[in-house]
Design a protein around this nucleic acid. Sequence first.
DNA 1: CCTTGAATTGAACGAGCGTTCGTTTATCTT
DNA 2: AAGATAAACGAACGCTCGTTCAATTCAAGG
Lengths: 211, 211
Amino acid sequence: MARKAGSHGERTEAAIRNAALRLIARHGYEAVSMRQLADAVDLGAAAIYRYFPTKQAILMRLLESHMRDLLTAWHAERLPAARPAPQRLEAFTRFHIRHHLPRSEGVFLSYMELRSLTPENFVAIEALRQSYEADLAEILEAGQQQGSLSVPAPQVTARAIIAMLTGLTTWYRATGPMSPEEVEAIYWRLVAGMTGLSDRPAKGAARPVTA
Amino acid sequence: MARKAGSHGERTEAAIRNAALRLIARHGYEAVSMRQLADAVDLGAAAIYRYFPTKQAILMRLLESHMRDLLTAWHAERLPAARPAPQRLEAFTRFHIRHHLPRSEGVFLSYMELRSLTPENFVAIEALRQSYEADLAEILEAGQQQGSLSVPAPQVTARAIIAMLTGLTTWYRATGPMSPEEVEAIYWRLVAGMTGLSDRPAKGAARPVTA
DNA sequence: CCTTGAATTGAACGAGCGTTCGTTTATCTT
DNA sequence: AAGATAAACGAACGCTCGTTCAATTCAAGG
């Protein structure tokens, strides 16, 4: 046997990526073999090399597109710098949760498998991650300077918020009793508290949008 | 050659554990081979099997003792349930940071390599983790009922806090510009904010201890 | 000092690894 | 219908994996 009936390159590549995402998220990059991956998409191991030059390239492409998707979606949805910092922060929080909840496997990969990247691949991905983090830090800093947010140390707080929000994906399951909207509301309240916002804002803080 | 001059079982075992912790934290369980590990402690690969029956047992012992150390230290340091919830929460927060900061590699392992455990080993470790999390949730719940803390959903908030605090170990380096005490202060302020505590507590909340 | 047991070795096992290669089959182009 | 190209195969390569085992050397106890 050789070429299969109805086979099409783009479809096969997508199938490989999906299977790789699922398998690596579940077992880890090093633990997943090319033969395992090939079995999952009903191919011989050799066929994968038509689409990815190496195993490392599979991981890299998964991580890279995960980060690019994140940044693209965020850049489309973020509020302009002219808007009040509390609103921008809420937009960030809700966006982050909405974007990540249905992508738990990609999130997992992005956290766990950075160390499986070659050094040069690592710095490329890390740069993307840092730009996202810096965006949040800038919002916090702006709010601090305007007096609408009260934040101990913007960079540290930014990391704390992201860690907290991202940790969500490790336990949240769509099949559970909690709706995404409920989760979003809870976490936004936590973030608001962390940054000195409360339900009855003092000292001229903009009213939190509870959309 | 066989037995080495000055060799002693206990010392060798400790050396293996230390090297395994460092190597697995850096490269991942699956990526570290027995020969690599043996090299790091200047032994032949076969010698490791005098101390650990399998590779899996090394990981399990590392994770188990990490969790047991955590729980033992916490049980020794936590405040009794009679004390005000805000104080108990602050004790938890500061303990968690103090305990984890110098153990970043163990923390990393406990998060990343759970999936490398066999199912039965996994449930054993997971039970320990859950008991720690439940302890925090109980504090939040108590504070909520007494009205000294304002928490959206105790279980969710407990997970959020732990994720936030534990994320600290991924970026904090003792060689950096920030002292452990500064970090502790910042994070406690964040946790206090998340739970409705502020510098000027309202509605009868106990005054946060800023020791 | 001699024996016993702890500590470690080197060699080997079968299995599986990522990757390459020449070949075969299906689809597309003309 | 024929030739070109895209898609997949099975077999193999050299290596490394976790683990076992008989043999060897060192440290202690009587």
